[in-house]
Computed example of a mutant assay.
Amino acid sequence: MSISLLILTLTLAIDYASTQTCNPITCVLPDCRCWDDPSIPGDIDLTDVPQMVMVTFENALNEEFDQLYNSIFTVNNPNGCTPKGTIFIQDLFTNYDLVRALYDKGHEIGVNSLDGTIPADDQEWKAVLEELHTKLNNNGVKTKDVVGVRAPDLFMGGTDEFIGMGNEGFLYDASCATSKFMQENNLLWPFTYDVIPKAEVKCDIGKSVDRAFPGLWQILIPDLTFNGTICATPQACTSVRTKRDAFDMFFDSFSKHYEGRRSPFVMVLNPAWVKDKDKRDGTIEFLEFIRAAFEDTWIVTSRQALQWVQDPVPQSNITQFQPWQC
């Protein structure tokens, strides 16, 4: 078969897949999950599902933010292990010695951008992701462990971004903010783009995926609400001013997940939020409270949450789940 014919065949196959309804009988874990599948992974009983909370950071990592990020984690998970977060790295102003130190402690390292600029097309996405992979690998962070992408300012790169991700061996995106799927009765579990979700799943910021990308995952970011305002990130909720405000905003959103289908709750903490003492203290108080009040709540990295979705284990057996061990 000629190269041109092969490319045409693959393109037609992708286009065909893009028009199909996702079939949960053929789209099965660990490599595929339908976007509109209402079931809990593994069909685990709701009362036996661990509630995952993902604490994520983004942008440059330097001496100032290294200390602030570490200060967030003051409690242990139910198995006695210290929780870890996911840091999506921007190259500009980053100290890679600190990145390596967090990586060595077990925190997940993802990628964000070179300098905060949003890539213009698939070629720029490929180039940016390749360069970030190379820089991290050269500084002791193994490429095989860097599998997550968060676009600058949650400006989802859509199909262009996923072309770059597939080219560079990434596994998931964590950039797609949504104001549609943010209620207790419609929060979505992470899903793959084996079949695109047509018009139903659209990112509030940036571009949405309009082609099939089998095996590549989407971790949605449901919008937050506070005092009647909807915001994609905590920092965007400008009426949050006090420690109590921060606590209440996080707990309200967390409760929707916990009282719904226990889909993972994502916390998007940017440098401005973490630098504010009241907001930082409210964040810490929230994490301390949910760990004390809900024995089935776990603070995990984005990859750890995805590993559970791919290989779901009931809460009753979860202390032996290898990806969550110390």
Rank of each mutant, 00 (worst) to 15 (best):
D281F: 10
N23Q: 06
P190Y: 05
G282A: 11
L171V: 08
K144I: 10
I219H: 09
A212Q: 02
E64H: 06
F251M: 14
G164Q: 03
V266C: 09
P314K: 05
L287I: 07
F289C: 10
L61W: 01
F162M: 12
A177Q: 06
Q322L: 11
W298N: 02
F170R: 05
V49H: 03
L5P: 04
D45L: 13
N270G: 15
V147K: 06
F65L: 15
G157T: 03
W35L: 01
W125E: 08
V195S: 12
D153V: 13
P234D: 02
G282V: 07
T19L: 15
N317C: 09
F321T: 07
Y172S: 05
F93Y: 15
Q67F: 03
M249L: 12
Q183S: 14
R150T: 00
Q123C: 05
P41M: 10
C32T: 04
D104L: 08
I118F: 02
Q310Y: 07
D36P: 01
F191E: 01
P119E: 04
M249W: 06
T19F: 13
T238P: 03
N186Y: 10
P197Q: 09
L188V: 07
N186V: 05
S175T: 08
F247K: 05
I290P: 04
S302N: 13
C34K: 09
D252S: 13
I109E: 00
D91A: 09
L6H: 12
M249K: 06
N76Q: 11
E259L: 14
P41F: 10
W217F: 06
K198L: 14
F93N: 15
L220Q: 10
D296V: 08
R150F: 00
T319V: 11
A272K: 13
M182G: 05
G228R: 10
R261T: 13
I230L: 13
D37Q: 06
G157P: 02
E184K: 15
R303E: 09
R150W: 01
D173A: 14
P271S: 03
W125P: 07
F155S: 14
T225F: 01
G80Q: 09
S2A: 05
M1T: 12
S71D: 09
E130M: 09
K202I: 11
L287T: 08
T9G: 12
V128Y: 00
I221D: 08
L12V: 15
T229H: 12
M1H: 12
G42L: 05
M52N: 07
D210M: 07
D276G: 04
E200F: 14
R244E: 15
A292Y: 04
R33A: 04
L224V: 01
G158M: 02
G110C: 03
F93E: 10
D281M: 12
I284D: 03
E288C: 07
W35V: 00
Q304R: 01
N137S: 14
C231H: 08
S239C: 05
V141S: 01
K198T: 13
V266A: 09
I221T: 10
Q310R: 15
Y96P: 01
T74V: 15
V309G: 02
Q315C: 06
I290F: 06
P190F: 07
V147I: 13
Q51M: 09
Q90G: 04
E168G: 11
G166N: 12
L154P: 05
T297F: 02
D248Y: 02
S253I: 07
